[in-house]
Computed example of a mutant assay.
Amino acid sequence: MRLRHRSGRTLHLSYCTNVHPAEDLPGIVAQLDAFAVPVRKRLDTDVLGLGLWLAAPAAAELAADPRARRRLRTELDTRGLEVVTLNGFPYAAFQAPVVKHAVYRPDWTTEDRLRYTLDLARVLTDLLPDDAARGSISTLPLAWRDPWRPDQRDIAARNLDRLAAGLAEIEDQTGRPVRVGFEPEPGCVVENTTQATELLAAVDTGRLGICLDLAHLACAWEEPAEALHRLSQQGLPVVKVQVSAALEVADPVAARDVLQQYAEPRFLHQTRSAHGPATDDLDEALAAGLPGPWRVHFHVPLHVAPAPPLASTTKVLETALHHLMAADEPWCDHLDVETYTWDVLPVDRRPAGPAELADGIAGELAYARDLLHEQVAE
């Protein structure tokens, strides 16, 4: 969906398709009909934005075949769908039975990660709407934090230089600029905006910047205004915003039985206490008895509050969007709703099938759209 900022800039609002398991091109096209088109119809919008996730094999296939890219663009156009942003964080198998730390591999010390991201950029230049100013790709914040040796930092820095050079070459060839945003996440080398300003200080900020995931921002217990000021002082642009909310609980002891329902085996749910202690997964936090309150890296639906005594970090989300949109020019014009955990929610909150999942995605997008309308109109 498109909205208009008071400055006249177009804001692109989409939903991220990493919630769906398809990883080959026929499966990707099938998921457009199963989910994206029903979501568009529920929202009664002529055009729906997708934050498309392409697993590495599909990205490589498309990057090598201009005709396949044109076919995918046609499949999108005929369904009233558009793509200005890709999610390049998961490399493959993101909806496998167990993902956990595998999502951080390959990292930015590897040729595979560089090749994958440049493949995505090549694909995106042919998927972008003709009137889109630019494309964006989100990626992991260098690597998981352990191990992270000085030699790895040096290799990653060289790969980021090669990434910027590759993006420049693609723009020269196609006339379409694409920027890549590194997404701070709990437990990673770049966990928060402070670390981002330290470890990404030397990047080419014309092509590289930050993907600000609002659930991650909340889990790091960062204040949105301070975080944005910190990035601005360093000159790091916000390339993309992931509109997401994390799980929050004031008293983990009282909520233990309910929290246990969210301790599932597929994804990591890094847990952070307001007082500093941290664990890399929710079951570890429950076993360790971290002092509350907690914020848990479990992306929860934006428009439906978790069962009490749990809550979500939508207040952080709302505050962040206010600051992102309050200036004369928006900080960012690519906003992607990224709730990939629908299938691992507690059973009584999990969609029963494709129609209910489409209902949930449409509800989240309507929430984000209405909230942005309020911010843009102020």
Rank of each mutant, 00 (worst) to 15 (best):
G187S: 08
R134L: 15
T125V: 13
V203M: 06
P293E: 04
C219T: 11
Y262I: 08
L231D: 03
L167R: 00
P237A: 07
R115G: 09
H322F: 14
R70H: 11
G292M: 04
R71I: 13
H269W: 05
C188D: 11
D112Y: 08
P186L: 06
D126F: 12
V83K: 01
P147D: 08
L321F: 08
G235V: 06
Q260L: 15
D172M: 12
D283C: 14
R42K: 05
D281P: 00
A63Y: 02
A218E: 03
T174M: 05
T85R: 10
G206W: 06
R153W: 09
R158S: 14
W331C: 12
L317R: 04
E75Y: 03
P330K: 03
T139K: 05
E23T: 08
V253I: 14
E169N: 13
D336F: 03
A326K: 11
A320I: 03
Q152G: 06
L268H: 02
L50R: 04
H322I: 11
H20E: 12
H20K: 07
I210W: 01
L247S: 05
N192E: 09
I155T: 15
D33V: 09
G209P: 03
T174S: 12
A133F: 08
T313E: 04
H323Q: 11
T110H: 07
A156P: 02
A377Y: 04
C332L: 07
V84L: 12
T78Y: 10
N192Y: 02
G49Q: 03
L199F: 14
G80R: 06
N18H: 08
Y116F: 12
E318F: 12
S7F: 05
A30S: 11
F35S: 11
A121R: 01
Q375W: 13
R230L: 13
G8F: 04
Q95G: 06
V39M: 01
W108R: 08
Y91M: 10
R230A: 11
A59V: 05
L324M: 09
R158P: 02
L32F: 05
D119T: 07
C219N: 09
L52Y: 00
D280A: 15
L114S: 04
L236S: 01
L32R: 03
P97R: 12
P184K: 05
